[in-house]
């Protein structure tokens, strides 16, 4: 089985039931993506798959052999990472890699003008990075420490606002 992660192609001999998350964590020693629920309910396992944020616990590795997977280990001094450090956007750190990957994916969605549930009728002319928008768009990533109030400015600033 082939898996391309952070630009490196890996040949792996995996159980066909292996998820992308378990392939990363148990076979590639890329433990940045976290297992918080294994059910797509918490977002701790978020990675970018061909540039889009996904819950890697819900994907079978065998089905994504042609994809470009990017994990938190694939970022180097990204503005979102700097923002989280600057604003204390985490406590225990377990949801953090997922939050960061999710934020990077989310900022790209905003760049494309995609609306969210917090967006009014016409995305044109709306601030898609208002605090309410950031909160709505990041709500798939849970943080039990409650670091949310610090993540919002971290993400806003990473977007150059």
């Amino acid at each position: 089985m082939r898996l391309t992660v952070n630009g490196i192609e890996h040949d792996l001999d995996l159980d066909p039931r292996t998820t992308v998350l378990d392939a990363l964590r148990e076979h590639l020693d890329l433990t940045g993506a976290k297992k918080g629920c294994d059910h797509g309910q918490c977002g701790a396992c978020t990675v970018l798959l061909d540039g889009r944020r996904v819950n890697s616990c819900l994907l079978l590795a065998v089905a994504h052999q042609d994809a470009e997977i990017r994990t938190v280990e694939g970022f180097e001094d990204h503005p979102v990472q700097r923002g989280f450090l600057e604003h204390d956007g985490f406590q225990c750190g377990y949801c953090t890699p997922g939050q960061i990957c999710s934020a990077v994916g989310m900022l790209d969605e905003v760049e494309r003008g995609w609306p969210s549930a917090a967006t009014g009728g016409d995305p044109e002319g709306e601030d898609l990075l208002s605090d309410a928008e950031i909160r709505e768009r990041m709500s798939g990533n849970l943080c039990r420490c409650g670091a949310y109030p610090n993540m919002v400015p971290a993400i806003r600033e990473a977007a150059g606002r």
């Binding site: 433990t31 940045g32 976290k34 297992k35 990472q81 989280f84 450090l85």
Partner: peptide, 21 residues
């Protein structure tokens, strides 16, 4: 003072219990 382990936590380098090969 910023958390000393912050850089490890934002890069995925911080190891939690289940992550030691």
């Amino acid at each position: 003072l910023a958390r000393l382990e912050g850089p490890k936590k934002v890069t995925g380098a911080a190891k939690y219990a289940a992550e030691y090969p």
